[in-house]
Design a protein around this nucleic acid. Structure first.
Lengths: 346, 346
DNA sequence: TGTTAGCACTCAACCTCTCGGAGTGCTAAT
DNA sequence: ATTAGCACTCCGAGAGGTTGAGTGCTAACA
């Protein structure tokens, strides 16, 4: 695989991304940094096709990149890129994030993902790995109607969950005080990760038959803790996907309604930029789509990921730096925020 | 407008809804309850066209209903329908709502809207009018990080809002206790509707310069109260819209991203079934679409609405009873729930 | 041995033309 | 008032032809 072939591959990708049309040998031979004739390019393209990097939609059409072709191209880009973004681009991105007042991790994630969706005209995906170290900091019960109570669960990292529970009968103030005190004592400081069903059912038995009636509340806590342990995945800008002709509309629809399954693709295992192509195995994602994600960190560990989902035909050279910029920013922001918290937790 | 013309109009609508093709005179003349010949039907159709109820896509094609045609048709349906749903259909719908355990108004709304989306293959819209009579029942501040606090607002009808606020400096326990007590005293029992910006800024001044630093928290309450006063509008099943050929895809996309503007169409003014057609003035809705909504009630007043958005070409005769069934159910459910609450509030 | 010009070949895309059929409006008869 | 008959309109599907971009191969060339 000599340098010229790589150059030709890159030219095919660039051109195809730009125009959406198969790229012919003549087009490439006329590029400024290709010094050889169309015939030579043709020979090389035939070889690239044999190697599985290019393909022809039909005889007598130009070539388009295969998934492997894109992969190789992206590796090339990632290998040589060290330039990062121009100053003006960075400030443009910053402007899109909105004012820095009152910023929280969540808000930053949100604005980053909408900004990314707007720039790239793709759907963006954000996931927030359930922090292993967060602990319960508060449990509360609030009556909101006849035999209707809301249980509130607050974690050390500021997540608030609430759940309405219907009871068999009205609770007395005494009941509620007891429950709250009991839960506070038994759950405060308990890591969310440890909040298993068993642990809670232990509590139910500990609470005794007298308090049997409180089990809906405990059930509620159970459900909330399960939610808290789940990685959250949000997708924004799905509409953007509809504008691409090379994505199948009905697949997009299926994807949108099953997007929670994305979770399985986004765990905290890998780090750095990761590019996946649709329908290479994972058969719920959209065929002919690609997903670019990068992780952001918290205390040295992957804390979540941010990325885009779009057609395979994407301007990777532009989009990858954008995503990296945002995840870097998130990592930095969190570490600044985190300082105070770490102290608190020691 | 004699009975036969109405029958013919209805036949055109029925047929067009079923097939999507313009309907010709011959098709209609062969229907069992049309006793006249095709030529007669043609004459009547020409008159119906003159009256603006039918139109021709082009000469020498069949007729399709105009918006007015649909309107008239729907009025007819609404006029004569009193049958309601068959028992089996009702139980089918009930089954789709899931188990009745632990049901809240919100959950019921949610399951009704997903069920409706599934049955009708349309998008469904749900709005929850901000209840005018709900009052603040609890205010709370919880520290969640360095200079980071969450303010919690709970209303008498069980709505919980929370907002993270970044402060200039860390609050002492004393500060927090003061704030909480102060707010509790001044806001508890205050109707959400009265929670204007002015009222809150009065509080800020009342609190004095000493507590000036607490203004981010009060700001937070401000924002939450604004949210609480807003009618909530949710749309589900937008994907379904994409499957209709007679809706413009790009309009759907625009609609999805601007769906919060629906709010303006869904206020608590009217009640009963209401059918609107896209692009008859409201120019943000989807052209050639229709929206059927019905209101559900709480204490005799409209409390929210539930409906579907789909192509104009809808089986109104089926869908309208479905929607009515769900809104009736909601009204009933709420009034059962409400009993306890009303007592509480007196 | 790598590169290039030349040439025959392929195939999608586009245009044009034709033709059938569904449906109409009108008129005259019932 | 209703109907049969008839000439007319126009969409849409299909057939056929042309164009042009692009290819693979071969033979000549450095």
């Amino acid at each position: 695989m000599d340098a010229r072939k790589l150059k030709i591959l890159a030219a095919v990708v660039d051109n195809y991304v730009k125009t959406g049309e198969p790229v012919g040998s003549k087009t490439i031979s006329m590029l400024p940094d290709i010094k050889v004739s169309a015939a030579t390019v043709r020979n090389d393209m035939a070889i690239l096709e044999e190697l599985g990097y290019l393909e022809q939609p039909h005889t007598s059409a130009g070539r388009i990149p295969t998934f492997s072709g894109y992969r190789l191209y992206i590796e090339e880009i990632l290998g040589q890129k060290q330039t990062g973004l121009a100053e003006e681009e960075r400030s443009r991105l910053d402007a899109m994030l909105g004012d820095e007042e009152n910023l929280t991790e969540e808000l930053l994630l949100q604005s980053a993902s909408t900004a990314l969706a707007e720039i790239t005209k793709c759907a963006t995906v954000v996931s927030n790995f359930a922090p292993k170290y967060s602990v319960i900091s508060k449990v509360e019960v609030i009556p909101t109607g006849k035999r209707l109570y809301v249980v509130l669960l607050i974690t050390s990292n500021g997540k608030i969950k609430n759940k309405a529970c219907r009871m068999e009968f009205d609770l007395t103030q005494e009941h509620m005080d007891f429950f709250q005190k009991f839960m506070q004592e038994n759950l405060e400081g308990v890591s969310v990760a440890e909040l298993s069903e068993e642990r809670l059912s232990e509590l139910v038995t500990a609470v005794g038959t007298y308090m049997m009636a409180l089990s809906p509340l405990i059930q509620g806590i159970c459900e909330m803790s399960r939610d808290l342990q789940k990685n959250e995945v949000y997708v924004t800008g799905e509409q953007n996907l509809l504008t691409y002709r090379d994505l199948d509309k009905s697949e997009i629809v299926r994807f949108i309604s099953r997007k929670n399954e994305l979770q399985s693709l986004l765990d905290d295992s890998m780090s750095g930029i990761q590019v996946m192509f649709g329908k290479e195995g994972n058969n719920f994602v959209i065929g002919n789509s690609s997903m670019i994600v990068s992780k952001y960190q918290k205390g040295g560990k992957a804390a979540g990921s941010l990325g885009v989902i779009g057609p395979v035909r994407l301007d990777y050279a532009k989009i990858i730096p954008y995503i990296e910029y945002f995840t870097d920013k998130l990592t930095r922001f969190i570490s600044e925020q985190g300082e105070g918290k770490e102290e608190e937790e020691t």
